Computed example of a mutant assay.
Amino acid sequence: MGCRNSKVLPEPPGDVQLDLVKKVDTIQPPQTDIYQHFIRGDEKAAGAGGGDKIGGASPLLALAVGPTALVQAPKEANEQSDPQRKKVARVRHTNIIQLMEVFETAERVYMVMELATGGELFDRIIARGSFTERDATRVLQMVLDGVKYLHTLGITHRDLKPENLLYYHPGADSKIIITDFGLANSRKKGDECLMKTTCGTPEYIAPEILVRKPYTNAVDMWALGVISYILLSGTMPFEDDNRMRLYRQILKGKYSFTGEPWPSVSNLAKDFVERILTVDPAQRLTAGQALKHPWVVSMAASSSMKNLQRCISQNLLKRASSRCHSTKSSNSIRSSRSTKSNKARRMREKELRELNRRYQQQYNG
């Protein structure tokens, strides 16, 4: 769900100035002692650890990342070809993917982490036969609990979206885990808590980032508001193929509760979304406050709710189909341009061959 172009720098609206940072191809050195963990964008190889465990932990996934400047380790003459085991700071929470170990060689950094096999959040919703507000609050409780933990440690995820919320295993009782910390920022105790880097995935970027204001971890809550909206309807609160129009929607906080299944969604659920999708970050609910919202508290204990799965699935599939068609159309346009370009190139080559033939005739004559 949402844009698949993770870790993008947004194109600024014409009437808004942004302080963009240059996108780089390699992983930058860590700014904190937790590394830029769980990076997926530069993966070169991946292998599953099967049933292997470390210290009684769950199945592991090893990623080979490179080239990189993530860790600068001293290389002894007799150790240049040996992996260097690195000490890693632990972020331990049941709803956050666990980085177990980091190993470095001359050209690769290997990150050993938990293996999540349950698939993405919305793939599961489409596949199941029932999804109610109670189910939505259970999902959000797990995500909010993980985000609250991160924020307590001074960590801001900065790229929360459905693709980064995975089920731990295929079973019906699987927990949700937060993954992909490639844009995460950590502030040590005493550091200034404000961030300035413009980053994220377009549909989930908070307004304060777009207007290049120094921002706090409240940007994660805005993204959770977008996720909550999608979770309850299968549609996006802010969406436009034109980035400028999309950003203007976000800056205005312009969204609505129209269309199916919103008439069947409770007012408490809508109030929850409204209190998070608030343009003013100071008025936005924190993760702790969101966990205490009446909708989350009451619906989590409810047993009888209207099934929203059919409408949500239809909307999700409709959007996926629309985006697929848009991609095909774009590819078709590029293909058409490419065909025209190739035809023009062949014409130029033919003309050059003809000119060369005439020159040879003249010269030989």
Rank of each mutant, 00 (worst) to 15 (best):
Q36V: 10
I177W: 02
M195I: 04
A77T: 02
L308H: 02
G171W: 04
Q289G: 03
G47Y: 09
M244H: 13
F257Q: 13
A218G: 00
G51F: 08
S304C: 03
S332L: 14
S313W: 00
F38N: 08
V109H: 00
P30G: 02
E351Y: 12
T156A: 14
L285A: 03
G288Q: 14
G288I: 08
Y149I: 09
Q283F: 10
L183S: 12
Q36G: 00
A184V: 02
D173K: 15
I126C: 11
T32Y: 05
I276P: 02
K340L: 11
S256K: 09
K44F: 07
G47W: 13
N267I: 10
V65D: 02
L61N: 02
L9C: 15
P207S: 12
R85N: 07
T132E: 05
E101H: 01
L183R: 01
E349H: 05
K7M: 13
I178R: 01
L165A: 10
Q31W: 07
R357T: 15
I125Y: 05
R319T: 11
S303K: 11
T327H: 09
S329Q: 14
P263V: 07
E349Y: 09
S130T: 14
Q283K: 14
F103D: 09
A57F: 07
Q72Y: 06
P74M: 04
K7W: 12
D82M: 13
K328T: 15
M299Y: 12
A223V: 13
Q36P: 03
R138G: 01
E43F: 06
L317E: 08
D33F: 06
L355V: 13
R353P: 00
Q84D: 08
L9P: 01
V24M: 05
P83T: 05
V24S: 13
Q289A: 15
A46H: 03
C3E: 12
L210F: 03
R243H: 12
G182L: 15
I176V: 12
L308S: 12
T201H: 01
F181I: 06
F103P: 03
S330L: 04
T258A: 11
I230Y: 00
A301E: 14
K340C: 14
G182V: 10
E107M: 07
R334G: 01
Y110L: 14
N342A: 15
L150N: 01
D123A: 08
R323K: 15
L60V: 15
P170F: 03
E114I: 11
R4Q: 11
N267K: 07
S81W: 10
D33T: 10
G14R: 15
Q17G: 00
G182R: 05
Q289T: 00
K75D: 06
G118E: 02
